[in-house]
């Protein structure tokens, strides 16, 4: 790890003043579960680390007129155990349950989950977000078993966020603050597929801090299904988050969002179309799962993820609708 300056401001305003115009100027530290490893591996070596954990206004989970506000500093464990979230947004509760381990859920924050960097092993080894070495495309020519099956490149990493797909499915808004003010971004637009290694994979500027997320109140039935090999301490191979607006027993409209299959949470209009107007059954859910992956373009080693993504969609739809397998 390279040396850095450290500050622990008490207010958002102070924190924002400590950030810089470039990514190497400063990094925001919350739970640290990703940043500290990145700094150890020297994938990131900021000159300054700004700890935001002492900023009260970034904490907490509360009910608002618009829905539920989740502060950036809410821990994953707080999300997991929050009854408001469990009652309305089981898709988020399930996503929280899938996060690594009790320790990580105690440390890691909601904002940190959204801003964490990809786990791509080439990226972590210092070859960049779109890793190349001696003119070769490392992901295409190398071991891409955990990489993207959607997105058409050049970025082939998968978004590591656990909450991203659920937030996109639920139409959440992400609030960002900078020294010049605040802005709000649709969750779907927050995640980006960069075209070069110099660009970030989220719509966040070096001098901005993610402050909170507003999940709009909804009657939609929602669920998340994660496929992980190991029960704990493992990254999903694919996930699906769904939100279904029901009309009686049929799906009036659906949002189906896949995780860990593309550089961003991947919205599947095809899967939504396949299930809309139908009742959720094992058969319709399976058909929607197939529709979700019809346009997948796997790499040399990860065709298996196409099958897993289809299964995740099927199972998330069934879970949301309360249909037993």
């Amino acid at each position: 790890m390279q040396p850095f300056e450290y500050a622990s401001p008490k207010t958002l305003k102070e924190a924002l003043a400590l950030l810089g115009g470039g990514w190497s100027d400063a990094a925001v530290l919350a739970g640290g579960t990703d940043l500290i490893s990145l700094m150890k591996d020297e994938v990131m070596s900021p000159k300054r680390v700004v700890n935001i954990k002492e900023i009260a206004e970034l904490k907490g989970i509360s009910k608002t007129a618009a829905g539920i506000r989740i502060g950036a500093l809410a821990t994953v464990d707080e999300v997991l155990s929050n009854p408001l979230i469990r009652a309305s947004f089981p898709a988020l509760t399930e996503a929280a349950r899938g996060v690594a381990s009790p320790q990580i859920r105690n440390m890691g924050t909601f904002g940190g989950d959204l801003c964490q960097r990809p786990r791509c092993w080439y990226f972590r080894a210092g070859f960049g977000l779109i890793p190349r070495h001696e003119g070769k495309d490392l992901v295409a020519e190398g071991d891409n078993r955990y990489h993207a099956i959607f997105g058409n490149g050049p970025a082939r990493f998968v978004s590591a966020s656990s909450f991203g797909p659920a937030l996109v499915a639920l139409g959440a808004k992400i609030k960002l603050a900078s020294p010049s003010g605040t802005r709000e971004v649709d969750a779907e637009k927050f995640f980006l597929a960069p075209s070069s290694s110099d660009v970030r994979e989220v719509d966040l500027k070096p001098n901005e801090i993610l402050t909170e997320v507003i999940v709009p109140a909804t009657a939609a039935k929602n669920a998340t299904y994660e496929v992980r090999q190991k029960d704990a301490l493992d990254w999903p191979l694919a996930t699906a988050s769904v939100a279904l607006t029901m009309k009686g027993s049929t799906v009036a409209s659906a949002r189906v969002v896949l995780g860990h299959v593309a550089p961003t949470p991947w919205v599947s209009a095809e899967a939504a179309k396949a299930i809309e107007g139908k009742a959720v059954t094992a058969e319709t859910a399976e058909a929607a799962g197939k529709a979700a992956v019809a346009a997948a373009r796997p790499l040399s080693m990860n065709a298996y993820k196409v099958q897993i993504a289809a299964a995740a969609v099927k199972r998330a739809l069934m879970a949301a609708a309360g249909v037993k397998a």
Binding site: G32, T33, N51, N106, M107
Partner: peptide
């Protein structure tokens, strides 16, 4: 419970 390796 937390991981001390990942706390400054």
């Amino acid at each position: 419970v937390m991981y001390a390796c990942t706390i400054l």
